[in-house]
Amino acid sequence: MNIKEKFGAKVKQLREERNFSIEHLADISNVDRNYISDIEKGKRNVSIEIIEKIVNGFNTDIATFFNDKSFKKK
């Protein structure tokens, strides 16, 4: 799994854990819903600005978001 896929999987995991629809996450993060869908599928090379918007939408911080075993090298 590449980093785009890992990031997308994490976004989808958090979104589903919080019972957010893609539309809701798009609204609270100010990111287009189609863009979020593509992120979750690992199709987007996401900028740091978009990462920040999504992380803020989850009401967390970047360090917490990335402090996850899914981002550790194996």
Rank of each mutant, 00 (worst) to 15 (best):
M1N: 09
N2M: 07
N2D: 15
E5F: 01
E5K: 13
K6Y: 04
K6R: 15
G8P: 04
G8A: 10
V11Y: 01
V11W: 02
V11F: 01
V11N: 03
V11Q: 05
K12V: 02
K12F: 01
Q13Y: 10
L14W: 03
E16V: 13
E16L: 14
E16I: 14
E23K: 14
A26S: 15
A26N: 07
D27G: 03
I28Y: 01
I28H: 04
I28M: 09
N30M: 13
N30Y: 11
N30S: 14
V31R: 04
V31H: 04
R33N: 06
R33F: 02
R33P: 02
N34L: 13
Y35M: 14
S37F: 03
S37D: 13
D38A: 14
D38Q: 14
D38L: 12
D38C: 07
E40K: 03
E40H: 01
K41G: 01
N45V: 09
N45W: 09
N45Q: 14
V46A: 05
S47F: 07
S47Y: 11
E49L: 11
E49H: 06
I51M: 12
I51G: 00
E52I: 09
E52K: 13
E52C: 00
K53E: 07
K53M: 08
V55M: 05
V55T: 09
N56R: 14
F58I: 14
T60I: 13
D61Q: 09
D61Y: 07
D61W: 01
I62K: 06
I62F: 01
A63N: 13
A63I: 14
A63Q: 11
F65T: 09
N67T: 12
N67M: 07
N67I: 04
D68I: 06
D68V: 08
D68H: 10
D68A: 02
K69G: 01
S70R: 13
F71R: 07
K72H: 08
K72M: 06
K74A: 03
K74S: 02
